[in-house]
Design a protein around this nucleic acid. Sequence first.
DNA 1: TTCTTTGCAAATGCTTTGCACCCAG
DNA 2: CTGGGTGCAAAGCATTTGCAAAGAA
Lengths: 147, 147
Amino acid sequence: MSSDEILNQAQEIFEVYLEQNGHRKTPERFAILHEIYTNYGHFDVETLFSHMQSGECRVSRATLYNTMELLIDCNLVRKHQFGDNIAQYEKCHRVGQHDHVIIADSGEVLEFCDPRIQQIKATLEELFDIEILHHSLNIYARKRKNK
Amino acid sequence: MSSDEILNQAQEIFEVYLEQNGHRKTPERFAILHEIYTNYGHFDVETLFSHMQSGECRVSRATLYNTMELLIDCNLVRKHQFGDNIAQYEKCHRVGQHDHVIIADSGEVLEFCDPRIQQIKATLEELFDIEILHHSLNIYARKRKNK
DNA sequence: TTCTTTGCAAATGCTTTGCACCCAG
DNA sequence: CTGGGTGCAAAGCATTTGCAAAGAA
């Protein structure tokens, strides 16, 4: 599936979500979705804000924060807190469940997916009699120096 | 090992750490360590602050934040970010590596330890040629309703 | 005495909120 | 039209910082 198709699907999902929840389909909301799905893997609100300031549709920080909540609510975006207190966001439509390796020096974020996580979750659900909603696994590491 | 012994060991570790790194052994620092090791599992700075205000040794928030860094540096305390942007801390001397289940409704924190995490980490170190420093795995769940 | 540490209060930086104006429905 | 949405600026809140005073070495 091309990234255009992914964007289109995301827009459709967002539209349906907005309709079903009685929210208006404003140009700002779609501009934000478009920006996110066109340009980023992981990002923070400030980056998004400054990029969109130099674009055609300028939105305020307030609108960005509002819209992020909507996008999170309809599973088009996920929110992370990687240690510092700047929230990081990530688009997540059709992106398989994965986890993160954060490189200490550079802040670079790698992604991986290990099936053993699912096994652990299954064990926990039984052990604690809980229903797992989601999880976050972050590995903090540094690159090996000696080759 | 009793909790008194754990406290004593922690104090000793802290003392050695302070000496070796040219930090002074102030009463505030030991009062904070004592408060943490006597009273909490997980806690945030504000809780610690207000509890210590009503105690004998009153410390400022600034000192609390400073001291938390020292304690983290010598592995007597760990820092978490469970989603919101209030940092949560946890004492960790002689507490085996473990991870967390956060119950959505109540905010209750359960602990667990699964050896498969270590296996995953070993795999990742090889895969990405990195040296893993630490990790954080948080499972967000809700309690099963029907019994 | 010396120089780190403390405490206070002000500053910072991310995020939220209040409110007047605007526009999707 | 009408009420939800937007932008702006102000407010909130956790955390950090500057600086004078305190006190550990």
